[in-house]
Structure formats: structure tokens, C-alpha cells
Amino acid sequence: MSWKTTLSWEDAKKKAYILNQIRQFFYDLDVIEVETPLLGRSTVTDVHLEAFNTHFNYLPDSSINNADTLYLQTSPEFCMKRLLASGYQSIYQISKAFRHEAKGHIHNPEFTILEWYRIGFQQDDLILEVSDLIQAILKCDMPKVITYQNLFLEHLNIDALDTSVEELKDVISNHNKMSDWLKDESSIDTLLQFILSELIEPNVGIDTPIFIRDFPINQASLAKMNMSDERVADRFECYFKGIELVNGFCELTDAIVQVERFNKDNLERKQLGLEEKVIDRRFIQALESGLPSCSGVALGIDRLLMLALNKQDIEEVITFTIDRA
């Protein structure tokens, strides 16, 4: 057990400078910094995300005998969209987020996230703005852009929008990545996500950042369907040096469709034996009242710092990771 930090004083000063650069970037664009709660009464329904929770006895409607469950945010998304529905214009936030996952060399269960929303932006507009920020911080070349479909065709000769469970399992087996749980897996999207993370991600954006756009619609619970191809959504990710850095959407504004997608998540949770999650009704009410047309993006600050400071492990850009907290 060590009490010492893994973030050096010299790197702490560089980190502070980069955070100031980010704030100046948004100041120049007249995008306003906001704060939202870390604790809330609801959480995400996403099958692949689990939130930390705690209990609280003092809400106005709390039962005498039962405490209410509160969740640490996995991202500030729902509350920031409630701000937009309340009349706020383009906004950003640098905050802590929490995900109940194992610590790894690029992930800590408590991490720092940059999230921003641009009123009136489409997917292409936000990709350009994210590119500007990444180039300003990392001094890298202009990122490349490729569709999800073309990415799979280029790397594995698979049409990800017209494939089968059998074809995907054959690819996994041919790359010696098959395991017992994958043999039993029946979801095309789960298999696609595994292939992307295990077979493609480590080999993309090595020298130049790359944006992957137009994800399959089933992998974009909070994004609008693409107007040209209903099989895909206006969602993008950015990778650099094998690290997933950015996840962005042209935001879904239809409350009815959003509830349908949340219910679909919970159905999948039930089938997998996972706890179903209560839908965030305040978020749905905000959508019903009218979320303006916008696009939003989340960027991992700690991962950005790893790239900027040329570090190999996330603990080198955080004062105290979960094992030292």
C-alpha cells in the first residue's frame, strides 16, 4: 500500500495548463461552462454500463423505513440535456464520472469527462469542432474520417450492416479470440462490439486520429437515426494511438422513441439476468417539453492527457487511482 501520488508535480502543472487550454477553447466559441449533480435518482439503462449507487434517507418523499437509492453519474448527459430543454444554449462541462468497471491502463472507475452540446450542429459540424480541439491540444495532424461499415470492410472484409452471427463468430475464431461466452452469444451487436474492440481498435488511428461515424442503429441508444440510411445512427467515435477518446451523437429529441429504446435496453438486461433500471423520468419530461436540435460529445480527459503527455498508464495522469484512493 502506498500513500504517494502517481502524478508527478511537473505533469500536474502540464495537466493544469491543458485544462486551461480547453476552457479557453470554449470561451473563444462562447460555449458556456456549467455544473450538474454527480448524484441522481436515476441512471442509464445501457446493458454495457453499471453505475455505483448509495442510499439517502432525507429526500422530501423518502419512506421512514426505506432509504432511496441514488446513483453516481456515468456521464452528465441527462442533466445537461435538461439544461438545454430549459433554454440554455451551447454548453460544456468538465466533471467526474463513475463506472463500475475494473481499473485498467486506460480506465479508472472514477475519471474526468469533458462533455459538450452544440445547438443546431449536425454530426459533421461536431466532428470538425472535435478535430479542432484535438489538434490544438495534441498538436497532431488533421484526423481522418471513415464510416463504421467501411472500417469493417477495410480491416476484415465484413459488411457490418449486412452480416450474421455465424460470420462474425467465424472471424473471431479465425483470429484465435473465441471463448465460451462468445460461443453462446446470439447478439450481432455484441459480437460487432467485441470485434471492434479486440481486432480493429488496436490498429486504427496509430499515427493520425481517426473518426468512425455512422454506427449501427442498435449501438446508438441516444442518437438520431441517419436520414439517408435507417440502419445507422448519427453517432461517431474518435481513436488515436489505439485509444478510444471521443463518443458523439446527433442527439435524439423524440421522447417516445427514447422511451422505446430504454425499454429495449431493460428487456435485454432482463434476458441477460441483469438488474433492470428505472427510466429517468425527469429526462423524458425534458424531451417531451422540447429538446432543441443539437449534437453532443463526451471526451475522456484522462486519456487525452495520456496522449498529450506521452504516458502509457492512466495512473500517471491521475493523483490517486482507485487502488490508492
Rank of each mutant, 00 (worst) to 15 (best):
M1V: 13
T5I: 03
K15E: 14
A16L: 12
I18Y: 01
L19I: 13
V31I: 15
V31S: 03
V31C: 08
I32L: 15
E35G: 08
P37L: 10
R41F: 00
S42F: 02
T45K: 00
L59C: 04
P60K: 13
S62N: 12
S62F: 07
I64W: 09
A67S: 12
L72Q: 09
L72N: 09
P76W: 01
M80P: 02
K81M: 12
G87D: 00
Y88D: 02
Y88I: 11
K96R: 13
K96N: 13
R99H: 05
R99N: 10
E101C: 05
H107T: 03
E110M: 14
F111H: 03
T112H: 03
R118E: 10
I119V: 15
F121E: 10
Q122D: 14
I134C: 06
L138D: 03
T147W: 02
T147L: 00
F152G: 01
L153V: 09
L161K: 02
L168Y: 11
L168S: 01
S173K: 15
H175Y: 15
L182M: 13
D184L: 11
D184E: 15
F194T: 01
E198R: 07
I200G: 14
E201Q: 15
P202I: 05
V204D: 02
P209D: 07
F211Y: 13
I212W: 01
I212P: 00
N218I: 06
A220M: 10
L222V: 07
M227T: 15
S228M: 08
S228W: 07
A233D: 05
D234S: 09
R235P: 12
E244I: 01
G248Y: 13
E251F: 01
A255E: 09
V257H: 07
E260Y: 13
E268Q: 14
E268P: 01
K270E: 11
L272Q: 15
V278T: 14
V278C: 09
I279C: 03
R281Q: 14
R281P: 04
R282F: 09
I284D: 05
S289N: 11
G290V: 07
P292L: 04
S293L: 09
S295C: 14
G296K: 02
G300I: 05
L307C: 10
L309P: 03
N310G: 06
N310R: 08
K311G: 06
D313R: 06
E316G: 02
T321H: 06
I322G: 06
A325R: 15
A325M: 09
